[in-house]
Amino acid sequence: MMPLTPMPTEPLVEMRGLKTHFHTDDGVVKAVEGVDLDIYPNRTLCVLGESGCGKSIMARSIMRIVDAPGRIVEGSIQYRSAEGSIVDLAKVRHGSRQLRQIRGQDIAMIFQEPMSSLGPIQKIGQQIAETISLHRDVSRKEAKEIAIEMLDKVGIPRPRERFESYPFELSGGMRQRAMIAMALSCQPRLLIADEPTTALDVTTQAQILDLIAELKEEFEMGVMLITHDLGVVAQVAEDVAVMYMGKVVEKGDVYSIFERPQHPYTRALLESVPKIGGEKRDRLPAIRGMVPHPLARPTGCTFRTRCDHFMPGICDVNEPAMVDIGDSQAACFLHLEKTHD
């Protein structure tokens, strides 16, 4: 068992009541609907959920790269800079110098598909060196040396030769590493990783996850890792947030979430995956139905349509608030009942 990193006092990012909506011709898609989350330095927060639950849009909101017609309609994203000043990323103007400086330098993001952040017709070394020159006060020669050092650090063999490679000359795993090298070249204080290993093989995935964990320790970086793979969460997370239909339904430290899941959705997710070496079951306890259409959000608790503990007259009337249960928090009326008793 790995020791828990002691909780630092001040979070890097505090999201409060964050809402990102998409105004479409058919109606308003509430992709992120009131998220409160903190990201701490030198800790990994894993955001877990099925596709369409809003985890990527939430991450993109922090970076302010939500595509139109989506926009942040409410809430705040307080970012604490290295000097201690606080910037509300939700309010910073698009294209402003302040935003460009924070993005890339303070906060970096990596994606599932490395080709979405690597240009196809420029050598990878140049792309990394360019990022370094943009954000750090170094000569071109120094930038090149730092880039080669980064390529070496992320485990790319023969980094000096690879500096001259084009992205198409690298395998998927190597490209992913090159993208990570670029993201980390300015020593960001926060790394947002959106499904960084989903397209990779398990052996490569293990190498990339190790790499992120090592660099996190080395630079005391905060990491927000978005994934739907429970195995990955269990292996790398300190904190976990489970999202469903744009909301965080449960959050807590990794042991609480895996050992004492409180929300029926978290429990159902944990049960529905086959586990290696687990007891042999003929059928998997699947969650029935599917995630409702984003334009047809159920009233009250959004999970009630698939929940085995649905209480008519309660769950479909009001939205459950987050309540403390032991070391974690969950938004479910089953627990609200208990706290009232």
Binding site: M174, V254, I276
Partner: peptide
């Protein structure tokens, strides 16, 4: 063996160092 070791187990108490190098 290497393949089985590389699979992330959904149990935070089963964290382990693994490492098959190369591609």
């Amino acid at each position: 063996r290497a393949l089985l070791e590389a699979v992330p187990i959904p149990d935070p108490r089963a964290r382990k160092p693994r490492r098959l190098k190369g591609e």
